[in-house]
Design a protein around this nucleic acid. Structure first.
Length: 919
RNA sequence: GCUCGAAUGGUGAAAUGGUAGACACGAGGGACUUAAAAUCCCUUGACCAUUGCGGUCGUGCGGGUUCGAGUCCCGCUUCGAGCACCA
């Protein structure tokens, strides 16, 4: 019988669907395993061959775990809210929901063809009201909680109100926007609006006046991770800083826990490092400098407390509240002019333009250690949003301060022995301190590290400041001036925001006539009719950002149809957390921070039992496109093969990779491709037209998009799955190159052939060795996510068994099970038709390898002495006399080297053959 | 600038400190065939030798540890990724 992938695959996929074989339920009698893919945004372009890479890897792992007897949760869904559908809606008037539905259907059919073992009964879509009810619910919970620093967790806002009522802010330790101070009496005297404003300062989801990334072109604000180098990630439009009244999430309150949690998860070091950078913890000191002649302290943050003797000036951020307080009357005009100048620069201009600018305020601060007066300046190189918005400048040991000092001719005092500060600052945190002696503190001769500690101790004792930890991580801006997102379950009464009652959730997204802002500049929801509560209070017009829906979806899969809770305690208690999460690195500082934050908040609430959502995370590499080129001779319609092009003056033209095979152009298909090539002539080499190639992003405009459907149609899903794994290490980025897929396809055909005429004969020792080598290798490889070497192992195994003319069911049966995670359709077919089982291979047991079949073939002699050197000499079990003699000599030599004093151990372990020469 | 990765044939890549280049593609040669496709076999890191055997060099560069280094350590080079007036 011929291997017919079309027939086999459609038949088995139907079978799996009809028997609901991949449906799972909570089953406390079995150990659980949760394998998750980052769910896709269903874009209009559909899937290309790069998308399924991670899905195939997770599918292999899920199937493997299932064969090992685990109850595997392996769901899929859609991150359905997003800008492209909305942009498309603006252009065409088509409702984004319609576009999204069409795209989801397309994704589903593409995914189905690859043969994944998803439990589709658990599918979630973020735009589904049944789903976003719980996104809205979580938001309301965040509104109803504050972060208690002493308890190190979120607490109900009622507890905060109770605290205010009894003690005001006395003894309060809570994450807040501003440090407020009031008494219980003052709190009681506040009106409702004022109380609401105070509570906003503490809520985890809060309305705040913050500097936001405003993108005029997209007409919306963006989160920090949606902006790079002053441009929006999506579209690449300029982004400005703008002060707006927006919903925010107090992610910063969780900064330390987000950092600590990284110690407990099994992620790659580089991803953890990326998150650590993003959180940006820095330990330092907050210190007060008196302003000369005024009753005012400047509070600054520094990580280099040791350099305090080298402070020669102070700098304030232009937006700092200090600026107005310290500016002397005679300098007021100059300062105001400077502030105006700075304000008109965009963030991007400020970044590109590294010119040193600044203005003197006319005031002086007093260095608390030397008592000397130092000038206070304003400059835009100091950021308002970090630390206190004011710094002590140490030009000798900070390159930015150095540039400023040189530009304005301010003094530079070196503080580290041997540091040459004539050309540039010495920024390294190492060396011995000099010039650092004052009346009360002497740091001279100390190492920088010790000097920092000594200074911190000193300022804490003298009450000059305190040890302080700062984080770069900012609160997440949670409002979007967009239509296609979750509506906020919020209404306003007398200008005070209130949450809709829980029984009115979900608040459904209303219909509107156009997907644009209103004439008065309000977000699109301003167009909705009757967008108000029953008693006429207006509802919030903003919608939630993309990350809202994706922050807890992994929890919803545990209990997707529960209408009373995001997830029941039973379901969450069983599935707990994602054991394996596979997705791209592009979410490192977005989704993977937000969902960890979201999860920690739900953990504080007691909704979930695990503090970290994703135990192990693998980042699959990006698949790049491999573009092909033809070379047109200038001003002709003649194309010259790549190898001959240097003899002509040519222009390279992208050619559709789908009409090129192994870089050989299909001439007829090329002529038919576009009208202007219908009359194309060719200059061939060896009778063929060879195309050039380049690695580029996979995109329509490069004509290098390869659709998985085409590969499945031509070679079958199993070939696609094996080939994507064979392409290289999972975590590495690589170009898609269809060259080589034939090799994998050949392997499947050989596998198929091996199973024809299977019988009940006894397997030979060689058969068993081949089989057990494979079982051992593949199990190891799957655990290490080294799928490419597994595929190689399959090829070796099948080649060997073919050469051995193995027909034995005792070998073929476990072989089918081992191959099943990788090539499920063909494994299933062979399991039934050739081996005669009437159950699914999915229900089989993963075979254990038996060391005895491997050991007897080869033996390694490991000779160690001195507890140090170690020689492994491996010889075949049936080794000739000469080899055995060599081993004996090695043993003897080892004993001689040790002088017979050290024990010589000879260990027998299985391994490969090594030729060892004794000199 | 700081942090983290990576570098091996014509190509994708393998190698718990122990035969470098598994496996595959491509290429060359051969078998089968009227022919092609399909299939199968041989060769394929470089150089030298070649009627036999074989020999030398070789994992970005320079050092080091080790009986032994692609692998470990130190110092570079190049490329990629993340962060970046973050004090």
């Amino acid at each position: 019988m011929e291997y017919n992938h079309r027939e086999i695959e459609s038949r088995w996929q139907r079978q799996w669907r009809e028997s609901e074989i991949y449906k799972v339920s909570t089953d406390p009698s079995k150990p659980k395993f949760y394998v998750l893919d980052m769910f896709p945004y269903p874009s209009g372009a559909g899937l290309h061959v790069g998308h399924p890479l991670g899905y195939i890897a997770s599918d292999i792992y899920a199937r493997y775990k299932r064969l090992q007897g685990f109850n595997v949760l392996h769901p899929m869904g859609y991150d359905a809210y997003g800008l492209p559908a909305e942009q498309y809606a603006i252009q065409t008037g088509q409702h984004p929901e319609k576009t999204t539905t069409v795209n989801i259907a397309r994704y589903r059919s593409q995914l189905d063809k690859i043969g994944f073992c998803y439990d589709w009964s658990r599918e979630v879509k973020t735009c589904d009201p049944e789903y976003y009810k719980w996104t809205q619910w979580a938001f309301q919970q965040m509104f109803g909680h504050y972060y208690d620093i002493a308890a190190d967790r979120a607490m109900p806002i009622d507890a905060l109100v109770a605290h205010f009522e009894s003690r005001g802010t006395e003894g309060l330790q809570a994450a807040a926007g501003k440090d407020l101070e009031f008494t219980a009496a003052e709190w009681a005297a506040l009106d409702e609006k004022a109380k609401s404003d105070v509570l906003m300062n503490y809520r985890i989801a809060y309305l705040g006046h913050t500097m936001v990334n405003w993108c005029p072109k997209l007409g919306t604000v963006l989160a920090n991770d949606e902006v790079s180098e002053g441009l929006s990630i999506r579209g690449g439009y300029p982004v400005e800083q703008k002060l707006m009244y927006q919903w925010c999430l107090r992610v910063s309150a969780y900064a330390q826990r987000l950092l600590d949690g990284l110690e407990r998860v099994d992620w790659t070091d580089s991803l953890k490092e990326t998150q650590r950078n993003w959180i940006g913890r820095s330990e330092g000191a907050e210190m007060r400098f008196k302003v000369a002649g005024r009753d005012l302290d400047l509070e600054i943050f520094t990580t280099r407390a040791d350099t305090i003797f080298g402070v020669t000036f102070m700098v304030l951020a232009p937006e700092s509240a200090y600026v107005d307080m310290v500016t002397a009357d005679e300098c007021r005009d100059a300062v105001r002019a400077y502030l105006d100048e700075v304000k008109h620069k965009t963030e991007r201009e400020r970044m590109i333009d590294k010119k040193v600018t600044g203005v003197f305020t006319g005031s002086y601060a007093i260095n608390p250690l030397t008592g000397k007066q130092i000038p206070i300046w304003v400059s835009d190189y100091v950021l308002a949003g970090y630390g206190t918005g004011a710094i002590m400048a140490v030009p000798a040991h900070d390159s930015r301060d150095y540039a400023f000092a040189r530009h304005f001719d301010l003094p530079v005092i070196p503080l580290i022995e041997g540091a040459d500060v004539s050309e540039s600052s010495f920024d390294a945190k190492s060396g011995r301190m000099i010039n650092s002696e004052g009346p009360e503190l002497n740091l001279n001769g100390l190492e920088v590290k010790d000097a920092i500690a000594a200074t911190k101790r000193f300022i804490a004792e003298k009450g000059l400041g305190r040890v302080k930890v700062n984080y770069r991580l900012r609160d997440a801006i949670f409002s979007r001036q967009r239509y296609w997102g979750e509506p906020f379950p919020v209404y306003y009464k007398d200008g005070i925001p209130h949450m809709l009652p829980a029984d009115q959730l979900p608040l459904q997204l209303p219909e509107i006539d156009q997907y644009l802002p209103t004439e008065s500049g309000e977000p699109p929801l301003g167009r909705a009719k009757n967008w108000q509560t029953a008693d006429g209070c207006p509802l919030e017009l903003n919608t939630m950002p993309g990350f809202a829906g994706s922050s807890a979806y992994y929890l919803r899969y545990m209990d997707p149809r529960n209408n009373d809770a995001l997830v029941s305690p039973e379901a969450n208690g069983y599935w707990r957390q994602v054991d394996l999460y596979i997705g791209g690195t592009e979410h490192a500082t977005g989704h993977l921070i937000y969902s960890r934050f979201w999860n920690k908040f739900l953990y504080d609430l007691g909704t979930v039992c695990e503090d970290e959502p994703f135990r192990k995370l693998i980042n699959q590499g990006m698949i790049q496109g491999r573009s092909n080129f033809v070379y047109r001779i200038k001003d002709t319609n003649t194309f010259v093969s790549a190898g001959l092009r240097k003899d002509y003056d040519t222009t390279p033209i992208h050619v559709d990779v789908n009409i090129v095979n192994n870089d050989v152009l299909d001439l007829e298909a090329f002529r038919a491709w576009r009208p202007e090539f219908a009359t194309a002539e060719f200059v061939l080499e060896d009778g063929r037209y060879i195309c050039g190639y380049a690695v580029e992003k996979m995109s329509k405009s490069m004509f290098n998009v390869v659709n998985p459907d085409d590969i499945v149609e031509r070679y079958g899903a199993d070939t696609l799955r094996l080939y994507e794994m064979f392409l290289g290490p999972l975590e590495q980025s690589k170009p898609w190159d269809t060259n080589g897929i034939d090799g994998v396809n050949r392997f499947i055909k050989k596998l198929w052939k091996l199973y024809q005429d299977s019988d009940d004969s006894q397997p030979s020792a060689a058969n068993l060795k081949t089989l057990h080598t494979l079982i051992k290798k593949v199990a190891q490889d799957i655990e290490n996510f080294s799928f490419n070497t597994s595929v190689a192992a399959f090829m070796i195994c099948v080649n060997e068994l073919t050469a051995q003319k193995c027909r034995s069911r005792a070998v073929l049966e476990p072989l089918a099970v081992v191959i099943a995670p990788f090539a499920p359709h063909v494994a299933e077919e062979l399991w039934h038709s050739a081996l005669g089982h009437d159950t699914s291979v999915v229900d089989a047991q993963w075979p254990a390898h038996d060391e005895k079949h491997l050991v007897e073939a080869e033996v390694t002699y490991a000779v160690s002495f001195n507890g140090k050197a170690r020689y492994n000499i491996t010889v075949a079990a049936d080794a000739d006399a000469e080899t055995v003699k060599a081993v004996a000599m090695a043993h003897e030599a080892a004993e001689k080297w040790t002088g017979g004093k050290e024990p010589v151990k000879v260990i027998f372990v299985p391994g490969k053959i090594l030729n060892f020469v004794i000199k």
